[in-house]
Nucleic acid binder design. Sequence first.
DNA 1: ACCTTGACCACAA
DNA 2: CTTGTGGCCAAGG
Length: 106
Amino acid sequence: MRLSPDSPFVAAVLDIVDSIPAGRVMTYGDVAATLGSRAARVVGQTMAQFGADAPWWRVIRAGGHPPTGHEARALEHYRAERTPLLPGADQESGYRVDLSRARWRP
DNA sequence: ACCTTGACCACAA
DNA sequence: CTTGTGGCCAAGG
């Protein structure tokens, strides 16, 4: 489906995403929780539709995986801003962000 | 009001 | 590692 472009939830999500510093990340659930919500999926839909002009690669899944379908492009950003990744899988597919070090809590 | 669709989450087997 | 189950929430049919 489509989210309303002027939904207050959408605006709030984008505000939070813009506040994440370089080299740090938040999970979809973290962003929702910051808004007092559990709508992690809606955060994902928000990023899918309106996240193009935001630092979308700083919002990842709870397991440390980058957003589905954007693994390769996200990795370029992580390398560029030195986001801590878990050791091991160095290839494009299969890597994860080290949440214990990179997680940002506002 | 019910069903379906998602850049999701947690937990169990 | 993989499925499956149940939960979450907005929007559209």
